[in-house]
């Protein structure tokens, strides 16, 4: 989404305000300050991070109940990313408001999501709340003595072995997986 290059951020704010009567002007001023933006800045002079913040300001000050964002933190430096995520987290504290966003960055997803949905080539392949995901997805680091072959366990979706060290990734972790590996002679280093 691109703003009009030759116009200022203030012009964009006035334009949106003329369409949304419930535009929250004090909140927009607060966001200007928090994001380190100036209303008189022309869009063509803004960096990528500033443009993302400006766009988010224009959206947030409308006080929408549902916010749909596509890769909101892509291409941002860590500081700008932190600022954006902090503001989105602040939105989430209001229980009447929701954010639906797409991201390839699992750190962002883990930081602000309540519910996660995986989409692959346009199809939903899994959808559940974050805590359940974090509980189910685990990485088991194993020490595998020579001559020992790791068994195929249900819920383990990937095993990578390099010499005596192996990493098994589980998408449906169960505590008895560790004992199943140890039963074959492997040693679980960490989960």
């Amino acid at each position: 989404m691109r703003l009009y290059e030759g116009m200022t951020l203030g012009w964009h704010m006035n334009f949106i305000r003329s369409i949304y009567p419930n535009w929250d002007a004090p909140y927009s001023q607060l966001l200007l300050k928090r994001f380190g933006l100036r209303a008189e800045q022309k869009v063509k002079g803004l960096s990528h991070g500033q443009r993302v913040k400006a766009t988010l300001l224009l959206v947030l000050a409308r006080r929408p109940r549902l916010l749909v964002l596509d890769e909101p933190t892509t291409g941002l430096d860590p500081v700008a990313r932190h600022e954006i995520l902090r503001e989105l987290t602040a939105v989430m504290t209001d229980e009447r408001r929701s954010i639906l966003f797409s991201s390839h960055n699992t750190q962002d997803v883990e930081q602000i999501s309540d519910r996660i949905t995986f989409i692959d080539r346009g199809r939903i392949i899994d959808s559940m709340d974050k805590e359940t995901y974090l509980d189910r997805w685990r990485r088991l680091r194993l020490e595998v003595p020579a001559g020992i072959r790791l068994p195929t366990l249900p819920g383990i979706i990937d095993v990578r072995q390099d010499g005596r060290l192996a990493v098994a990734t589980a998408n449906a972790f169960a505590p008895d997986m560790a004992s199943a590996y140890e039963g074959t002679g492997a040693r679980v280093q960490s989960i």
């Binding site: 989404m1 691109r2 703003l3 009009y4 290059e5 766009t55 959206v59």
Partner: peptide, 9 residues
């Protein structure tokens, strides 16, 4: 310049 996307919002 994809400004129309801004209006679509």
């Amino acid at each position: 310049k994809q400004s129309a996307v801004f209006l679509m919002s």
